[in-house]
């Protein structure tokens, strides 16, 4: 079953599940999980080349038809560093897509809103399709939209925690107000949570740890594929209203008891 396509910048996606490629046991496993997920947008990080070391190139394992790469700026601490990282990413991967993440604090990896806003403005002007990773702050999301973010990526919970949608109430406000796609990123730990985000009206979810560290990452990627799709179909089908008192779903005419 098909759902409405998702458009970010000049890219169109049929799948609303984005994948991170960190923490997989091997590049082969990563490839198979990406394939099973049906994702068309997968993140990669950038790292300094280690001289005199033969490196297994990640990109060659991600050459899957229909799959685009989304480089991230993980590891930078300021807007200035992020701009250089973005320019390097564009050069290395020949893409304008960018997951902007600036998290100076190594314990909770929470994004710095001030540096992120500054970097988004600069990079959008330089022609990048900027997807900033941020806390679930509705005001910040609107400010990012104003300075040219192509989408916003609020967190459900800190990166890699599998805690689910801890920020649910704020995500609802962000989704209600946003004029750009909302991608719930970080913290999603179970397929049911991906479905929940999609039912709420999120435009996409980005999942990494929950798949990569699962006992069977390929099966889990498939589960996330189905859950994300189910959530989106439910959203497009418009769910029934929640009510406090019961509403009968069977006829209440008495036929066994005499009235």
């Amino acid at each position: 079953m098909k759902t409405e396509p998702l458009i970010i910048g000049d890219y169109t996606f049929e799948s609303r599940l984005f994948l991170g490629t960190g923490k997989f046991g091997s590049n082969a496993l990563m490839h198979d999980a990406v394939f099973a997920s049906g994702s068309e947008l997968v993140t990669v990080a950038l790292r300094r080349v280690r001289l005199q070391e033969q490196e297994d190139e990640v990109v060659s394992h991600l050459q899957i038809p229909g799959v685009h790469l989304l480089p991230n700026t993980s590891g930078v601490r300021t807007a200035k560093e992020a701009v250089l990282a973005a320019q390097l990413a564009r050069e290395a991967l020949q893409t304008n897509l960018l997951k902007l993440e600036i998290h100076p604090d190594p314990r909770y990896l929470l994004p710095d809103p001030i540096e992120t806003l500054a970097a988004t403005e600069i990079l959008a002007k330089e022609g990048f399709i900027v997807l900033p990773y941020i806390n679930a702050d509705p005001v910040l999301c609107k400010r990012l939209e104003d300075v040219g973010a192509a989408a916003v990526m609020p967190l459900g919970a800190p990166i890699g925690t599998n805690q689910g949608l801890q920020t649910r109430a704020m995500l609802e406000i962000i989704i209600e107000q946003s004029a750009v796609p909302v991608v719930v990123d970080a913290g999603i730990g179970a397929p049911s949570q991906a479905a929940e985000a999609m039912e709420m009206g999120a435009d996409a979810v980005l999942v990494n740890t929950a798949i990569a560290v699962a006992g069977d990452p390929v099966a889990m990627a498939n589960a996330f594929r189905m859950a994300t799709l189910a959530g989106r179909i439910a959203f497009e089908a418009r769910m029934g209203a929640v009510s406090k008192s019961a509403a009968a779903s069977s006829p209440l005419t008495a036929f066994l008891a005499q009235e």
Partner: peptide, 25 residues
Amino acid sequence: RQAEWPDYQLQADDRVLLIAPVQGG
């Protein structure tokens, strides 16, 4: 940019940063 590499002459004390894509979320 890659197109400039063949003509780009390095100077003493230049700081060269080399980066490559790796797995990441």
